[in-house]
Design a protein around this nucleic acid. Sequence first.
RNA 1: UCCUCAGUAGCUCAGCUGGUUAGAGCACAUGACUGUUAAUCAUGGGGUCGCUGGUUCAAGCCCAGCCUGGGGAGCCA
Length: 503
Amino acid sequence: MQIKDLAQNEGKVVTLNGWVANTRDSKGLVFIILRDGSGYCQCIADLNTIGEELFNKAKSLTQESSVSFTGKVVKDERQIGGYELHINDLKIFQLTHDYPITNKEHGVEFLMDNRHLWLRSKRQWAIMKIRNTIIYSIHNFFQQKGFVQMDAPLFTGNAAEGTTTLFETDFYGEPAYLSQSGQLYGEAMAMALGNIYTFGPTFRAEKSKTRRHLSEFWMIEPEMTFYDNDQNMDLIEEFLHFVVKQTLEKNQAEFEILGRDTTKLKDSLKPYIRVTYTDAVEILKSKKAVNGKTAKEVLENDLQNAKNRLSECQSQIKDYESQMSKPGLKKGQINYFTSKIAGLKTEIKELEEDLRNIPQWMESAANFEYGSDFGGSDETVLTRLFDVPVMVYNWPHEIKAFYFKRTEDNKFAKGVDVLAPEGYGEIVGGGERETNIELLMGKINEHKLPMEVFEWYLDLRRYGSVPHSGFGLGLERLVAWICKLDHVRETIPFPRMYGRLKP
RNA sequence: UCCUCAGUAGCUCAGCUGGUUAGAGCACAUGACUGUUAAUCAUGGGGUCGCUGGUUCAAGCCCAGCCUGGGGAGCCA
């Protein structure tokens, strides 16, 4: 019996196997929060019903001890899953001592060192459940549409294609590199099977230390034959709508654990904003208003709000401190005040960071040079103006990879970047591919890439070249946005990033 | 690679302009409490203040270098 199935077994006597997430006890009762991977359930050992021997056993239980409880399923609305178990028999597999992760706050480094145990925590559990829904929905979406999953190789023989640094390995004495993208292979597979998608790990050796970078991450790369970039954008939108909807349907409980306000996710189910790069630059430079407001005005307003909130926090702290200075306070009240103050201090740190950042963002947005790529702050500013993802398309071809198709006037690459709202930045990059072999070879030369490495790719243009498009979705960034997490390191069971190879 | 912030008990942190035996909460142990939702009460053990060197009568605090980590730039999903 699993905890998730308790609802169907009200009143019955069942056995639950799992781990002790937390305990509390008083004279004749022990409350044990049991987790079994499927959910959480409060189990109660009552001295009067189980007798002294079993009661003492229950009382001895520690965090993460592995146990088996048999008892009656009782409905109790106050409880996490809506049900509790009244124990009449219990067995201990192992009594755990000194479990490192307690019910208190921990720092990032400590938690990352204990990632193998951290995964047992409620928050991490919720994130992994949502990640699973997302993965399952991605397959569902493409399979329903008749896409064939085909995976690109992870070892590649050349370090070409772009500027990204790759991981070098030894392939039977020859240098080989871990793949940074399966796209070129995806194109070859699409020419064989029609619409395909890849779903696999991707490697970037950039020494990036930011909240949105991993050295190893999972990427989904669909490639569609006879699609232009408009159809590509239609598909991206339909696809992301589908995935978000699935998580909203299946993961309400998990969103609650994370404290994720889902109204913003629901808002994102409206049609996405589509702007050309040129228009996006105008918006960024406040030469063009959105809903009657320029970027500058919105940010100035944000800045003022942050200032107001900051002084509010400061006066609240003073308030708490004066209440604490009164004599005769109970320990519990002191704890309450100190934790409130600690929470406010964290908020103040965040607000102060905003106060430092926003003017910089404003400056960098105002001075943005047409023709360059958007930086992280530019993406934040742009998405701040909308409550749905923003698709920026038709980029200056100079800043995009060699394989993009150009617009008719030859000025722009028919690429599209999807920027997630709430400051999450780029989650999808894609576009229409160049079909003309002459133009493609010209671009390869322009980028000073070794032509011989791309001969097989050029064959795709020699033999039955057709219009086609595709995109790449970063799974972890999508999970981070949907769950509203501070960092992608929590979106994958064992993150691999600069400075982190263990556990 | 560069900028920036940090490193004090098992964990999270406090430690004033350098001044005597280094503090709290949680966790742990023991006891008290019949329904709790991380933070009820009492008692107790627990620290080479990241490392190395320097300034000083005196360094957790100041200076230099190094190590480790957080955030960001570049690059990107």
